[in-house]
Simulated scan of single mutants.
Amino acid sequence: MSRKSKGYIPVMLTPFTESGAVDFDGLTKLTELYLQAGAAGLFANCQSSEMFNLSSEEQLAVTKQVLRVADGAVPVVATGTFGGPVEQQADFVKRMYETGVEAVIVITNMLAEESESAEIFDERFGQLLDATPGIPLGFYECPEPFKRVLTADQLKRFVGTGRVIYHKDTCLDIEQIKAKLEATKGVPEFGLYDAYMVHAVESLKAGSAGLSCIQGNYYPELIVWLCNHYDSDERANQVEILQQFFVDHMDVMHAVYPVVAKYFLQKRGLPISTFTRKNVGLFDETVRKQLDSLYVQFQQLLEQIELKPVLA
């Protein structure tokens, strides 16, 4: 998943019909949107996909559909560990890898309980490596049901096995990011993708391979633009404006997510429902007005940074 230039890896949504079934036509259009925006890869079957509310067969079907639409244009990764004995998790990792993904993502909170030590996590990850020979893996510091953040030393050891090529970081701490980047430097096949847009520019400058954030489920072209221009002297003022835009609107984009993201994309012209299987709270008139205001500000921002949108 790594590359010399910075890349945006969407944490993909799962569109549903109003009856609650997976909307594969909507998924096709959404995947095409990410690609048109310039995504460097795709992260299917993640928390934004409502993975914990999908059956294992749905997880595989969604991932296969994303792979079909991408058709080799960019690499695709997908989550493959959902608790239980290591052997059981390894079996699903194998099934997910058989879909054709570039790597299978390991949720860091699924190999050890919150009360269990880092040493137990390390031991079980070693068992998972042994049980899935030859399969490239990645990590996702998923915040649900609890967040287990890897240390720089852990990441260094795991990347050193030659099996870990991807890391979606959610530590929210730029100093930890820098430590992880220092610990894994010189491994060209590995990429760390930061989820936290508050320090996006600083993270990219520090050496992150790119960004993998929920903001891309509102306006993926903005994330791609930032990855392309974060260090541009000529665009420095526009980069600063965009970075501040992400900081200013952090709260509204997280409230009632992913309903709000689906509403925003719907407002932009993508034909998908706002239905979610996960209960994320009330999408009321107050939230709607906040999203409508965000949409207006987004339109104004596009003019400021001279960017043509991929949707209306």
Rank of each mutant, 00 (worst) to 15 (best):
V247L: 08
V296E: 11
R288P: 06
S2E: 10
A37C: 04
H167P: 02
G269Y: 15
Y97C: 00
T274A: 03
V86S: 01
C46P: 07
R68M: 04
I107F: 06
G38M: 05
E285P: 08
A112Q: 03
E18K: 06
L54Y: 13
Q176E: 15
F52V: 13
E175P: 00
D231I: 04
T151Q: 04
S232C: 09
F264H: 11
D71A: 14
D251Q: 10
L129R: 03
F298C: 03
E221Q: 13
R277D: 09
F190D: 00
H199N: 11
R95C: 00
E306S: 11
Y257P: 02
S115V: 14
F24Y: 15
M1V: 14
T14I: 13
S19R: 12
I241K: 12
Y295G: 01
M96Y: 03
R148F: 13
D292P: 06
I174W: 05
E123C: 04
E58R: 07
V287P: 00
N237R: 11
V74T: 09
R268Y: 10
Y230P: 01
P136G: 07
N109W: 08
L129D: 04
P15K: 09
V69F: 07
I305A: 03
Y263Q: 02
E182Q: 12
S49W: 11
G134R: 01
R124S: 03
E144R: 09
V224D: 03
L35H: 05
R68T: 15
P220E: 10
M96F: 07
K6N: 12
G186A: 06
D292W: 01
P143N: 06
V164Q: 04
K156Q: 15
K278Q: 14
F283H: 08
A152P: 04
